[in-house]
Design a protein around this nucleic acid. Structure first.
Lengths: 344, 344
DNA sequence: CTGAAAGCGCTTACAG
DNA sequence: CTGAAAGCGCTTACAG
């Protein structure tokens, strides 16, 4: 096991001071060319890499970004992550990643770890539990310590920072309107994420679209499934479809859509003639089901890229005026596939 | 923006030395209880967190693990990542994540960044390009610097380290044998990953199973699709199915299976009666297609957990004897769904 | 029980 | 053009 090469080692090799070597490595100009070249060559040959910890101690940027997401098994978050990673690596930044698993405690621990001088900034999508309990103290702490913060998708008005969101309200509104235009009147909504900020907005959009089209909101068609009841979704759907007329279902995430599709097929309804389906999140499932599911695309990779760009700007330009925080709203788009009727 | 609290600040507050504060914070015993408690209380109240960079400079563990994976949009890798993350966070470790995108260069850059004192160990699944070019110099460098290394799934014999793999050979062997048992004789193989270590092993397993069952290997049924030809898969399959008898297809990854399924359905064959399908990687696609695809499960989360456990052991017990490297082979299991005939 | 000193690896005024 | 010195925030023998 070879020891890591330090400036000291190089200094000894050439019989000069550490300061001189430091300057040579940094390619400064107040140093003799011959010496500099010799040192640079030696450093390259022996794989010299400056110790990041020493640099960071000296107050340099860490070139690390903290990423905290609720899950990585959810393709939407994986896509955003891929977008973040792309921009980060293009700019020489490393990602320190934590999965909150939708737990407030894990989120707090993750942020605490990152606050120890480990990162220049943090990108986060808030855990479900955090949104329910509305405990945002760890975010305030982050801001107070001068660590830049960017939120995406699951955000909160309580914290002033750059944000990247999707127009959830409008996306749900448009999807619902699409159902209406294609002749549906009994439009159900199925959600596993009613407690999150995005879930709430989507439900609002759905309701508004119904009202704007003179359709009464039927509470029995508002199927909000809590986390621990997800296994009961099929039962719930079967009961609902058995007892009331439903000709369309707006699903707020991929998995609920997949379950809805299965159930509807099992019950013998025709898709989209009897029942239409639109799902949020243009993930991988919807593309491979039969029929393929019409989705509201959230452009995850793009959201990730945008979030990272916001953060980079904060870090590198050192913009601190709080007034200038911006919220980027990304437009969703409806990807029409086979679970909705064609509009002319 | 409040400055981060340091030992110095606390020392000033109590009019004691920095050394004393340091000992109090570390809860050492050679210090008066009253002082210690006062300092601890003050530190807690003011959110003191030791500067990680200073600790690391002093030669402490970084409590960081580097993770380098080819992609995060592939559910298998996402699963492994989730497993790694679980064990890491349980043990107070942070993850520094890089996506190699199957590029040798990106992999080298990632490793170089991690080698600057940023991590205690690295978990990696080798990029496709790296396996093709067989350039493993960055791994040797890692080992030489005393950074522990664990490889999973895509590994190489050229580097001696702990490894976690799936019995790819046996998994493919068993899947092929399953086809034979269910009456298939013209078994094709469809692969996007022939160039990776795991792809090669799976192909070997497939061939061996054919030979053991007295079936000749038909090169025309060995469909190895290169990365840049993935778009042509459907055409290739259509041609193959049109010109030769095929009654089973072993797909080496999820996406090729999804494409195969689509194509077969489009051509009007019955599944599994005309053609059976088995896919490697028990991901999310195979669960939601119609019919649901029979898969060889690789137990991704478990692989991740196992990899992280290996690495932790190396780091924390400081095991260095090279002889003791172990390769854990995880058994695949066949998850029978609807694209294979039932065996009695 | 407390603290002065050296040191981890580096950078940066400053002096020469 | 070169180097001695101070300092980033911390720990750890060692002395008292």
């Amino acid at each position: 096991m070879s020891k890591r090469l330090t400036l000291k080692d190089i200094a000894k090799e050439f019989n000069v001071s550490i300061a001189t070597v430091s300057k040579a490595i940094q390619d400064k100009h107040d140093i003799s060319k011959t010496l500099k070249q010799k040192i640079l060559a030696y450093a390259a040959k022996h794989n010299y890499v400056p110790n990041q910890n020493a640099l960071k101690l000296k107050g340099k940027h860490t070139k690390n970004i903290g990423v905290v997401i609720p899950s990585i098994l959810n393709l939407f978050f994986a896509k955003v992550f891929a977008g973040i990673e792309k921009i980060a690596s293009e700019n020489g930044y490393n990602l320190i990643t934590c999965i909150s698993n939708d737990s407030l405690e894990k989120e707090k621990i993750a942020i605490d770890m990152m606050l120890n001088g480990a990162v220049d900034g943090i990108i986060i999508s808030i855990a479900k539990e955090t949104q329910i309990k509305q405990d945002y103290s760890h975010f305030f702490k982050t801001m107070n310590m001068g660590i830049k913060l960017t939120m995406f998708d699951r955000v909160t008005d309580a914290v002033a920072c750059d944000k990247v969101v999707v127009n959830d309200f409008q996306g749900a509104y448009n999807a619902t309107k699409f159902f209406v235009k294609s002749g549906c009147k009994n439009i159900a909504l199925l959600s596993f994420i009613s407690e999150t900020s995005v879930g709430k907005l989507r439900i609002e959009g759905y309701k508004k679209a119904l009202l704007d089209n003179d359709i009464d909101i039927n509470k029995n068609l508002l199927l909000e499934v809590k986390e621990h009841d997800v296994d009961e979704t099929e039962t719930l759907l079967t009961l609902t479809l058995g007892s009331r007329k439903v000709d369309a279902i707006l699903c707020l995430e991929e998995t609920s859509a997949a379950i809805a599709l299965d159930t509807i097929k099992r019950l013998g309804y025709e898709i989209p003639n009897d029942i239409s389906i639109i799902a949020f999140t243009n993930g991988i499932i919807t593309k491979y089901t039969t029929p393929k599911i019409t989705t509201v695309s959230q452009h995850g990779v793009f959201m990730g890229e945008q979030s990272m760009k916001f953060l980079l700007k904060r870090i590198e330009e050192n913009v601190t005026e709080e007034k200038q925080y911006t919220t980027k709203v990304i437009k969703t788009s409806l990807i029409q596939r086979q679970t909705t009727k064609k509009l002319d």
